[in-house]
Amino acid sequence: MSESKRFFKALFKRKIVAVALFVILFFLFCAIAAPLVATHDPYYQDLYATFSNPSAEHWLGTDHLGRDVYSRIVYGARVAFLVGIFAVIISAVLGTLLGLTAGYFGGWVDSVIMRIVEAMMAIPPIVLALALVTIFGRSLPMLTVVLGISSVPAFARMMRGQVLTVRDLDYVAASRIRGNSDLVTMVKHVLPNCLSPMIIVMTQSIGGTILAESGLSFLGAGVLPPTASWGAMVNDGYTWLERCPVFALSPGVAVILLVLAFNIFGDGLRDALDPRLRGGR
């Protein structure tokens, strides 16, 4: 059996992982093909037809500005993926750089980097994100960067831990003895060995980032209107729980589904990539 076949077999051993992947792909499809999937312009508002109940015209009713809730959820998937993926890429790149450097060189470099990382960890993430948003404004790219920065420490620590386990292995030492520079050694030999835990943590962080976005929205620091983001929609909706339950609950359900899917898929990946550990680095 080939390596990739074995991987996929392990990955989909639990059917729920396949379901999770299906949910992710479904939302991804919604995000990419939003204009085809949506039934309305997500920004079109009819102020005379607010809070309408679900109907053939508006599948999930309309919101407080008379916008189509279903179409907004579809377009909101775009923001969710954009913010989720880019924020995680930012934190993964920064975290990897810091963790790799700290772990590989050790000594005072390690001390300095890890103290900074720990300092970042000691500041509550929401406070850090709120402060950054206050300083730099509430735009979507800024929000992505802010959410990315606040999860850098997790990646840095994980990466450093990984590097420490492979650093002293024979082939890394061999590479150094062969006269390869530190940079080459790191990129060629240390980094590839750290990739699979990296992918696992990244998958799991996407969910966390989508949640954090909704939390920031609640505290008044989410994306600016009228952007159709799930966080902003959950925040808009919850005040209308009694008046318009579908509008109040559906964005939250979308968040739960996608985050759940990412988490379960992340677990599945971990099991498949690292059968030896079956969970837990």
């Binding site: 909704s214 939390g215 959950v234 925040n235 939250g252 968040v255 739960i256």
Partner: peptide, 13 residues
């Protein structure tokens, strides 16, 4: 898994 995936204020409300 659902616990981790729920927006906390949404649950609270």
């Amino acid at each position: 898994n659902i616990g981790i995936a729920t927006p906390i204020f949404w649950l609270a409300v």
